[in-house]
Design a protein around this nucleic acid. Structure first.
Lengths: 236, 236
DNA sequence: ATTATTTTTTATGTATACAAAAAAGCAATG
DNA sequence: CATTGCTTTTTTGTATACATAAAAAATAAT
């Protein structure tokens, strides 16, 4: 029975992670222990342990006597994110090119193939999760226990930012994703060849692509309507 | 009663952290839940939550159905440590110089004063913990939620490495610690003046000092005894 | 009608009891 | 004398029940 119980625990952990990464559980949302206990079919004791772990990894924040809440994303957070990301991503890619194991390269290619598929026929959620998996694997390849905590923390908000700034019906976005996929392929090649210099460069490029997309979203072209031409109603 | 209970929880958390940082709890040591439950006067339920949190922060590792164990320090780990540390330390210092708040500077000076005191009359444990506190505060000053996880993870093993490679009766070590304290003062000054360039440089210097000390310990001068002069006994 | 105060309800935190798995001890066998 | 298979003991994991704190609702007072 314990084997099954542990499986439930892992499943709950995965489900919560996905829900947070895809914004199904919004930043700031409260976690209801009783309800989760119901829906997951396990008691609150092991459930609370899962919540603690997720808090440790940055998915949740705990407040004394007030339960867990999905980690916030404020504009201050965003600034911190943009400062840290290029450095950590670059370091991880460089180390990945140095240390990747054959099995990991196989896994990376498999995820990339799924990612391409999701670009054609998947949902935004699929894409975000597969992109996340791709980078998670590069993190494992880097084989550095000291960089991983920050890298994983960045990946959480990278996924969430991607979901936030995603427009389903925008050609620019589609083009961007294609470019991202091409960069993934280039990254795979570098890693396979152990070319750490190019790997670090590609990390920067890949990162700049994401940033450009976000900047475009946050600071769009103004609407080109001459001043004084708005159709105000003066009837009421 | 819950207020007191929570205090016990925090205390246990702090006690375990200190014990791990100072090697009272050795890397690889098993954590006995029943015994901890006894000595801390709380039941296993909240205790296990504390263990999970410590695992999330890198102090412990959990194994399925086998309880918690103090995180290992292998030679592979050390290599990873040396690769990651300069980059993260430099970034943290630079950001600390940019973002430090007056209160934090006051706190930093207070810890540095205690550190100086410990150099004169404290134990190795006192020094390690106060040095740890010093750097923890610089981490807070940097005000970057994405860099902190890795920085804190590095600080754990920085403290443990310092304890491992400490010789109580060695003049070189004492000189090294004096230099470290001087560098702390220089760091404080940079942070106060907001001089981020010098701060990053000092981080590198401070780091090189630590590394030099460790290298000296790991690769000491060979004993200068001529070959063939050992006093083997041939009697038995 | 609005604010204070109290009761009620809900949710969070802890202790205990029990179930399951791993470890240790012990005998039997080759 | 090491190895295997069994039993006992210890340890780990989960469920339930209860205690405590926060939030909500209801009542009283101005």
């Amino acid at each position: 029975m314990s084997e099954a119980a542990n499986q439930k625990k892992i499943e709950l952990y995965e489900v919560l992670k996905e829900a947070i990464l895809t914004l199904e559980l919004r930043p700031g949302a409260d976690i209801d222990e009783a309800q989760l206990s119901d829906s997951s079919g396990m008691s609150r004791t092991p459930l609370r342990e899962v919540l603690r772990q997720l808090a440790g990894e940055g998915y949740l924040t705990l407040r004394r006597n007030r339960g867990a809440r999905v980690s916030e994303m404020t504009h201050t957070n965003m600034r911190e994110f943009f400062l840290a990301a290029p450095m950590i991503y670059g370091a991880i890619m460089q180390l990945a090119a140095q240390n990747a194991l054959p099995d990991q390269i196989v896994a990376l290619k498999a995820v990339q193939s799924e990612f391409r598929k999701a670009l054609r026929s998947g949902t935004a959620k699929d894409r975000a999760l597969l992109n996340n998996s791709f980078h998670q694997i590069t993190g494992q390849m880097a084989h550095n226990a000291y960089l991983l905590p920050s890298f994983n923390r960045l990946l959480i908000d990278h996924a969430r930012i991607g979901m936030t700034f995603y427009r389903p019906n925008c050609q620019d976005m589609a083009d961007n994703l294609e470019t991202a996929a091409d960069q993934h392929d280039a990254i795979i090649q570098c890693i396979e060849e152990g070319d750490e210099v190019t790997a670090a460069q590609l990390a920067t490029d890949h990162w700049n692509l994401s940033r450009g997309q976000i900047e475009n979203f946050v600071m769009p072209q103004g609407l080109d309507i001459p001043f004084g031409q708005f159709g105000f109603s003066t009837s009421a």
